[in-house]
Design a protein around this nucleic acid. Structure first.
Lengths: 150, 150
DNA sequence: AATAGATCGTCACAATTGCAACTAAATTGA
DNA sequence: TCAATTTAGTTGCAATTGTGACGATCTATT
């Protein structure tokens, strides 16, 4: 005997992992984006470019794209924007003249250093709200996911 | 004495939670999107609209947007696209004639039912690769995050 | 050494998205 | 009661993003 009134929907989005992951990631990203947008007028691709260069020092545009999974035109435009503000400079590679070696300027490094602090503070605030258990579990869960994708 | 050669970068993206979360979410979403795109030619907003309606039965466009955090124009266009395929129909609300009550057609429910199965299989596959520990931790970590945002 | 193919970054163009204005309808409140 | 405000959904336009083609350069094969 079928009870129409209590029939369960085939898929509960709130329980579906891709949905949950996406929503959480989007919520966090937006909050953090508010910080670098308000303080430095950076877009997401620009922040990612800045952060990647800040971490690795000297990189090509292609390498930035690979590392941060951004399309090469996105990187190209972000690089242009950062260059306009003198936060980044290009140096043509003498050995391979197709390549541009990108590097933050002192001004760019300053912005990066400041935003790195903001990022750490943001993360600390977030983690403190998850409690030690939540933090451990989230990190372990993410690590498992990353291992799977790798 | 400062050792320039071993100086640590201010921020390691691979350890930064928003970055990790985003990358994982994006990787998963893209894989899953490949399925509904290949099998039914659905875009992401269309799939979300279909899934939300499938789960809740009858909703307004605004409610869909609220629930799935999509901009109302995105919803509007997704609804239009689904309507074109006769997977969804609108019924003006007699009590409040601004409102459209949206509902999947039998054809739409069929697509939804099939994709719900695909979704469950996808999730099961994913979870099986995380192992029981990874699964538990990921779910608990996400729950902690969700509790924080709520 | 010369040709073919690959790679780097950019640009023009197309598709997608978001913002703001709009129509239509309901609600509020003087 | 009826003007002012709010709400639902759509549309035009602008900004953002992705696609494909391109010039320049390098590498591989012969």
């Amino acid at each position: 005997m079928v009870d129409e009134t209590t029939e369960k929907p085939p898929l509960i989005l709130e329980d579906f992992l891709p949905y949950r992951l996406n929503k959480a990631a989007e919520a966090i990203s937006q909050r953090f984006a508010g910080l670098y947008r308000d303080q430095y007028g950076l877009t997401r691709p620009e922040w990612r470019t800045l952060a990647t260069l800040g971490q690795f020092g000297v990189l090509t545009a292609t390498a930035i794209g690979t590392h941060s999974s951004m399309h090469k035109t996105k990187v190209s435009r972000a690089v242009f924007a950062l260059e306009q503000r003198y936060w980044l400079r290009r140096k043509r590679d003498e050995a391979d003249r197709r390549i541009e070696n990108l590097e933050l300027t002192p001004a760019g490094r300053k912005v990066y250093a400041d935003l790195a602090k903001v990022a750490h503070a943001f993360e600390a605030e977030l983690l403190s709200n998850l409690g030690p258990h939540g933090e451990k579990e989230l990190k372990a869960g993410l690590a498992a996911l990353e291992a799977y994708f790798r």
